[in-house]
């Protein structure tokens, strides 16, 4: 060992084992002047090379591709989860909105007057019927509904039963002063008080009776008050 060196052989050999890739200037200088340590450095380098060779175990075939594939699957799963999450949130919003609306408007079905008018519009051909129905037949038709009406002086163009919303009712067409009038006996369709209809070319009234309501609907020009008094004398209050 050269006397001018500031580092001794023990230090150098310790560094060759612990940090061979990052030797400092004084260590390198020592290696240049110390044949024994220079040989040790070569030995250490050879040892590390052999160690590295042994550490390089075979890697599973297609490892990189497997990782990339897994990442792709992972991404798809994440996207699917995100989509499901959004769907779940959307469904929750719709459900919540429905509940809130139903709470705000607990019972908002179509009104009885809307139902009556819609029924007449759906069966306009009955306003054209001219069947001249006899009172005895009319009585048979309306008897099951237990709603008393008085039609004696008007010509009866049509009388039959039909479904009005949830129940079967009676549909009668008589001759008014201006045009045919429709009378609907509507069991289960209750109204709290007398209602009037003024819509399109129709005017009408809905009168509450014991077990439902009776509608008289005719032309807009028709005076329905007189008909009401005659046809439904027992109108409930």
């Amino acid at each position: 060992m050269n006397e001018k060196s500031t580092i001794n052989c023990i230090d150098v050999r310790r560094l060759l084992l612990s940090n061979p890739a990052d030797l400092e200037k004084d260590t390198l200088q020592h290696l240049n002047i110390c044949p024994s340590c220079k040989k040790a450095a070569l030995d250490a380098s050879g040892f590390d090379d052999r160690l590295l060779s042994a550490l390089k175990v075979p890697v599973p075939d297609g490892l990189a591709n497997k990782i990339l594939l897994t990442k792709g699957i992972h991404e798809n799963l994440q996207q699917r989860r995100a989509r499901n999450w959004f769907r779940a949130v959307a469904a929750s919003i719709v459900l919540t909105t429905s509940i809130i609306v139903s709470l705000m408007y607990p019972d908002s079905p179509a009104s009885v007057s809307d139902i009556a008018l819609a029924h007449i519009k759906a069966e306009p051909h009955h306003l054209q019927d001219r069947k001249n129905i006899k009172l005895t037949k009319l009585d048979k038709i309306i008897k099951p509904f237990n709603m008393k009406i008085n039609i004696s002086s008007q010509r009866i163009h049509y009388a039959g039963t039909c479904k009005i919303r949830r129940s079967i009712g009676a549909h009668i067409v008589i001759q008014g002063k201006k045009a045919p009038l429709t009378i609907l006996l509507m069991p289960d369709e209750k109204v709290s008080s007398r209602q009037t209809i003024n819509e399109d070319n129709f005017s009408g009234i809905i009168v509450p009776v014991k077990n439902g309501s009776i509608a008289i609907i005719g032309d807009k020009q028709e005076d329905l008050n007189a008909f009401e008094k005659q046809i439904i004398p027992q109108a409930a209050t």
């Binding site: 052999r50 060779s53 042994a54 390089k56 175990v57 075979p58």
Partner: peptide, 12 residues
């Protein structure tokens, strides 16, 4: 698993 690369024998 030991690998066949390098100049080391399987034994080594």
């Amino acid at each position: 698993q030991l690998g066949a690369d390098g100049d080391l024998s399987q034994h080594d």
